[in-house]
Design a protein around this nucleic acid. Structure first.
Length: 481
DNA sequence: TTTTGAGTTGTTCGA
DNA sequence: GTCGAACAACTCAAA
């Protein structure tokens, strides 16, 4: 049996692997879709950070598989049938993807296998519900989250219980490449690591692989879940699971998370509903998946066509200031610097920096989507696109056009003691709470005492909030109706 | 069939 | 300082 690993880099709760193992000896294979071994790939959604994660996660999986995982770069529709022929394998087991690229890849593989009379065995591993399982009564897709989720809870099947790792797994060991001793099927051959030390820097903050994901899950359940629905909004706290990157590559399954929070007191009926709040967030991941499945071009196309004539500005300088965390608004800059330093950004702050880019700078959400894709370890095709369309106001649901976050009031509300800002903007550390979210208002003496010279240690604001808010409201008024 | 109310994440203004 | 209203338009489900 050939086990085709995709975004399911785990042994536990892996339906395809579980089934393959029951059939006999398994040859585990991962194919990274790329035209050549350059590392760059238009066929995968992974950006630079995602590729770094993938590199390490593949290493962990390979170790878990006693070194038998075969890693290739190229077209799965060519590589998998060739392997089947060479090693006389009768079937290919894999878990489904619902992204446009994943679906296309799968179609190609199925067709190629059909020619050789090799049977494909697809399973659902990575979503609680498949996109077509949760629809309106007329069969069309939901555009609003709450009805979608309610319908899933009330009418769709319960998510399956997680499977264990195969209890007996016989792995096929291929001969090593002779002569040079160079292993041409090791993850390193994909050249996924950037030539910059940046990749190493962001990787230092994280542990990749299935075991590490489960360790984070246990840590989350014990320390953060009891206060989840409140603390998850405060970026300075360890209030969220930080499991998004594990879900992207399938180091854990949503089913495992769904039932892991059920086994705690926090999800028992009558108790506080922290576990249900966490599950609801998993529901958003499902909802994004459904949106992408029904709108394969939503990476490029506004879900609301009227936004096609939105007057986006073109301003490379402002874009760069945003990317580098030099907008002069501390909570925005702290978020952008967290992203660049750690490959991650807290969800609350993602909304703030997104709103700032799209509404205050009036730059196209495509820029945000692309930058997040490049820098976020957890950049997920569906989540990232749906998130940016939501921020832009052009997403599936009719968002209030006047929802424009104020980075100062938001900072005061969600980072009241400026711990988050101080963590990522050390140059502002000594400013008192009263001025730290708007340093330009601090009296010269206060700035001096804090060792801050505006324009040298920290930039002045690149735009005026009130004026740009007004400009955004006018821009939105322009396209309405 | 039609109507009504609610919908992840908000801000500002004026009483 | 606190509170309610205003800021559109659309989707979905329940009444």
């Amino acid at each position: 049996m050939l086990m085709w690993f995709r975004a399911d880099l785990r042994l536990q709760d892996n339906p395809a692997l579980y089934a393959a193992a029951q059939q006999g000896r398994v040859l585990p294979v991962f194919v990274y879709p790329q035209a050549s071994n350059t590392g760059a790939s238009a066929l995968s959604y992974a950006g630079a950070a995602g590729q770094v994660w993938l590199h390490h996660s593949l290493g962990a999986l390979r170790q878990d598989l006693q070194g038998t995982l075969q890693v290739y770069g190229g077209d799965a529709a060519e590589i998998l049938p060739a392997l089947c022929r060479k090693y006389a394998l009768a079937a290919v087991y894999y878990n489904r993807s619902f992204t446009p690229t994943g679906l296309e890849e799968e179609r190609g593989v199925q067709q190629a296998l059909l020619h050789l009379r090799i049977s494909p065995h697809p399973y659902n591993a990575n979503y609680l519900w498949e996109p077509e399982q949760v629809t309106k009564k007329d069969g069309s897709a939901y555009r609003v989250f709450t009805p979608f989720y309610r319908n899933a809870l009330e009418h769709a099947e319960l998510p399956r219980h997680p499977l264990p790792a195969p209890d007996y797994l016989e792995l096929q060991q291929l001969e090593k490449t002779p002569a040079t001793g160079e292993d041409i099927t090791a993850p390193a051959q994909l050249n996924l690591l950037p030539h910059l030390s940046w990749g190493d820097k962001i990787a230092q903050h994280w542990e990749m692989g299935e075991d590490a994901a489960h360790a984070r899950l246990q840590e989350f359940i014990h320390s953060a879940l009891p206060d989840y629905s409140f603390a998850r909004d405060y970026p300075a706290r360890a209030g969220v699971s930080r499991l998004s990157m594990a879900l992207v590559w399938g180091e854990v399954s949503p089913h495992q998370l769904w039932y892991a929070v059920a086994r705690t007191p926090h999800t028992q009926p009558g108790a506080n509903a922290q576990g249900f709040q966490f599950r609801r967030q998993l529901g958003w991941r499902e909802f994004s998946c459904t949106q992408l499945y029904n709108n394969p071009d939503m990476r490029w196309r506004n879900l609301q066509p009227k936004f096609d004539k939105f007057p986006w500005r073109d301003d490379p300088v402002a874009l760069q200031r945003w990317q580098r965390g030099e907008t002069g608004y501390p909570i925005v800059d702290a978020g952008m610097r967290e992203l660049w330093e750690t490959g991650y950004m807290h969800n609350r702050v993602r909304m703030l920096v997104g709103s700032f880019l799209v509404k205050n700078l009036l730059l196209h959400w495509h820029h945000g989507e692309a930058w997040f894709r490049a820098c976020l370890f957890d950049a997920d095709y569906a989540n990232n696109c749906a998130g940016w369309q939501w921020v832009g106001g052009c997403g599936a649901d009719a968002a209030p056009y006047f929802r424009i976050f104020n980075p100062i009031t938001q900072a005061q509300k969600f980072d009241p003691h400026a711990e988050y800002v101080r963590r990522f903007i050390p140059s502002l550390r000594r400013l008192p709470d009263m001025y730290i979210f708007e340093p330009w208002k601090a009296p010269p003496k206060v700035l001096r005492q804090a060792g801050v010279a505006l324009g040298r240690d920290y930039p002045r604001p690149i735009v005026d909030l009130k004026a740009t808010r007004q400009r955004a409201l006018e821009a939105y008024a322009q396209i309405k109706g």
